[in-house]
Lab assay of single mutants.
Amino acid sequence: KLNEKEKELCQMVRLVPGAYLEYKSALLNECNKQGGLRLAQARALIKIDVNKTRKIYDFLIREGYI
C-alpha cells in the first residue's frame, strides 16, 4: 500500500504503516472538509508526539496530498 517515500517516512518517524495510513486518512479528510489544513489543526487531530506530527504534515505537503 505504501510507496517508497511513505515507507522511508514510517522508518524515519518509527511508525507502523497501519498507523501512518490512519493518520494520513484523518488529515486528508480534514483537509478536504476545511479546504486546507494548518499544522495546529493536524496536531489537534492526531494525538501523537508533535515532532512526528510535524514530519508527517510536512511530508504530506511536500508530496502534494494537502
Rank of each mutant, 00 (worst) to 15 (best):
K1N: 12
K1G: 11
K1A: 09
K1L: 13
L2P: 02
L2F: 01
L2G: 00
L2E: 01
L2M: 08
L2V: 05
L2W: 05
N3R: 04
N3L: 04
N3W: 00
N3G: 08
N3T: 15
N3H: 08
N3C: 10
E4I: 08
K5D: 05
K5S: 08
K5W: 02
K5G: 08
K5C: 02
E6D: 01
E6N: 01
E6V: 08
E6S: 01
K7S: 12
E8Q: 14
E8N: 10
E8I: 06
E8P: 01
E8M: 10
E8D: 10
L9H: 03
L9E: 02
C10Q: 00
C10N: 12
Q11L: 07
Q11C: 04
Q11A: 12
M12T: 13
M12W: 05
M12S: 14
V13F: 08
R14N: 15
R14W: 01
L15Y: 07
L15R: 00
L15M: 12
L15Q: 01
V16F: 10
V16G: 13
V16H: 15
V16R: 14
V16D: 15
G18T: 13
G18D: 15
A19F: 02
A19E: 15
A19N: 10
A19Y: 06
A19R: 14
Y20P: 03
Y20I: 02
Y20E: 00
Y20H: 01
L21T: 06
L21I: 09
L21H: 04
L21V: 09
L21P: 00
E22R: 13
Y23D: 03
Y23F: 11
K24C: 02
K24W: 00
K24I: 05
K24M: 03
K24F: 01
S25G: 08
S25W: 09
S25C: 10
S25H: 14
S25R: 14
S25P: 00
S25T: 14
S25Q: 15
A26Y: 05
A26V: 14
A26D: 02
L27K: 01
L27H: 01
L27A: 00
L27T: 03
L28Q: 12
N29E: 12
N29I: 04
E30W: 09
E30R: 04
E30T: 09
E30H: 09
E30F: 13
E30A: 14
C31H: 12
N32P: 07
K33G: 07
Q34T: 13
Q34R: 13
Q34E: 09
G35N: 10
G36F: 10
G36R: 06
G36T: 10
G36A: 08
L37M: 09
L37I: 09
L37T: 04
L37F: 04
L37A: 06
L37P: 06
L37V: 07
L37S: 06
L37Y: 06
R38P: 09
R38G: 14
R38H: 13
R38F: 08
R38N: 15
R38S: 15
L39M: 09
L39C: 05
L39A: 07
L39W: 15
A40K: 11
A40I: 11
Q41C: 05
Q41I: 03
Q41T: 09
Q41V: 05
Q41W: 02
Q41S: 08
A42E: 05
A42T: 05
A42G: 03
A42W: 03
A42I: 06
R43C: 15
R43K: 14
R43P: 06
R43S: 14
R43F: 13
A44P: 03
A44D: 15
A44M: 08
A44H: 13
A44T: 11
L45H: 05
L45A: 11
L45K: 08
L45E: 05
L45M: 09
I46L: 15
I46W: 06
I46V: 10
I46R: 05
K47T: 08
K47C: 06
K47M: 05
K47Q: 11
K47F: 00
K47H: 09
K47I: 07
K47L: 03
K47P: 15
I48N: 11
I48D: 14
I48F: 10
I48T: 12
D49S: 12
D49T: 11
N51S: 13
N51D: 15
T53W: 02
T53V: 15
T53F: 07
T53Y: 02
T53K: 08
T53Q: 09
K55V: 14
K55A: 14
K55P: 10
K55N: 13
I56W: 00
I56H: 02
I56Q: 00
I56P: 06
Y57L: 09
Y57K: 06
Y57D: 07
Y57A: 04
Y57M: 08
D58Q: 10
D58H: 08
F59R: 02
F59D: 00
F59I: 03
F59Y: 07
F59C: 02
L60S: 02
L60W: 05
I61M: 14
I61R: 12
I61C: 13
I61E: 11
I61S: 09
R62P: 00
R62V: 00
R62K: 14
R62W: 01
E63W: 03
G64P: 05
G64R: 11
G64W: 02
Y65Q: 12
Y65S: 12
Y65L: 15
Y65P: 03
Y65E: 12
I66Q: 05
I66G: 02
